[in-house]
Design a protein around this nucleic acid. Structure first.
Length: 332
DNA sequence: AATCCTTGCAACCGCGTTATA
DNA sequence: CTATAACGCGGTTGCAAGGAT
């Protein structure tokens, strides 16, 4: 369990890599593969620790790395994924081919975070920093965009609440039927009991997808920037959510939500195969139907108008693209 | 031209997790 | 089963480059 002592050894070089060192590392890996990083420096003739070699390879020397300015699409993806995953840079990098987690982290910290701040959006929560929606620019269109970002976060919270509810039901039924569960281990909060089996986790995941799908199923009668949840304003929406949480033991919900973020089933969300994240809310029609039905509000949450599931997937897709493009225009 | 300040990014550090003896 | 080694991740630091004064 102890920390690796590799970097504590004296005589090992630290700091910026020289071209000669790069060449040695590159040549060795190309010929032998990296194998054990710990053993690599000696074999490659480098006065570096294995950890340093690994980092240099992953973040700089690897041939399948794209360097240079981030495209608009990449920025968009990072913002969306950060709203979804938080500071899980490796998870975000998994959806950005040829970009490293370190590069994305740096880009977020030096560029995107500042831009969101300028827009009056908290880069941590992705919510407007003050309750004065639209105050950043005074533009009503911006207000609508900010409202949507707030709704996105609201959706996240609501999804967590639903997931917890689902997992509680699953836990209850499974504990009454079988006691042999292979629950994942949790170090941060031993009180929490996760959904026991993989199929159960998948159910929870499906419910999560369903809720988000429902949220972004657009109402045909409203303009492109209006999602069905826009029929409630943000404050009402938040209150509704808060009431739901209170009615259903907010403390436990919060803890369970925290657990779910750490758990493998939540990680499964990160690993979903999505070719274009702009389209992530619109599943193929079959799944969409199923998800919409699963997204029906639970009894303890007040009705939050998930919208008509009759709107076509293609128009939802188009409107969804418009929505994200709008955010992007604002950010860039 | 010199100095200070800001920005961007490569690299390091420490911790949690996983693998293995 | 336990202890240790190794890996991988996210936060932080340090420095070079460019801009402002």
């Amino acid at each position: 369990m102890g920390r690796s002592p590799c970097c504590d050894k004296v005589g090992l070089k630290k700091g910026p890599w020289t071209p000669e060192e790069d060449q040695k590392l590159l040549a060795y890996i190309e010929q032998h593969g990296h194998g054990s990083w710990r053993a690599l420096p000696a074999k490659a003739g480098l006065q570096r620790c294995g950890k340093s070699c690994r980092l240099r390879w992953i973040n700089y020397l690897r041939p399948d790395i794209k360097r240079g300015k981030f495209s608009l699409q990449e920025e968009q993806t990072i913002i969306q994924l950060h709203a979804l995953l938080g500071n899980r840079w490796s998870g975000i990098a998994a959806h950005l081919p040829k970009r490293t987690d370190n590069e994305i982290k740096n880009y977020w910290n030096t560029h995107l975070k500042k831009r969101l701040n300028k827009m009056g959006i908290d880069p941590v929560t992705h919510k407007p920093k003050t309750n004065a929606l639209g105050s950043a620019t005074g533009n009503p269109k911006d207000a609508a965009t900010l409202s949507h970002m707030a709704q996105w976060e609201s959706a996240r919270l609501e999804a967590e609440a639903r997931l917890v509810r689902e997992s509680k039901l699953v836990r209850f039924s499974s504990s009454s039927s079988s006691s042999s569960s292979s629950a994942p281990q949790h170090t941060s909060n031993p009180v929490m009991t996760p959904p026991a089996t993989r199929p159960q986790c998948l159910d929870v995941l499906k419910a999560w997808q369903g809720l988000v799908t429902g949220l972004f199923t657009f109402n045909n009668t409203t303009d492109n920037l209006q999602s069905p949840t826009s029929t409630l304003n943000f404050v009402e929406n938040t209150n509704t959510l808060a009431n739901g949480l209170i009615n259903d033991n907010s403390m436990e919900l919060h803890e369970m939500g925290a657990w779910f973020r750490q758990d493998s089933s939540y990680r499964a969300v990160e690993n979903m195969n999505m070719e274009d994240y702009s389209d992530m809310m619109v599943w193929e029609s079959g799944d969409h139907q199923q998800c919409s039905s699963m997204a029906a509000p639970a009894e303890n949450l007040n009705e939050t108008s998930y919208g008509s599931s009759s709107s076509s997937s293609s128009s939802s897709l188009e409107e969804n693209r418009n929505y994200w493009n709008n955010i992007l225009n604002l950010v860039s």
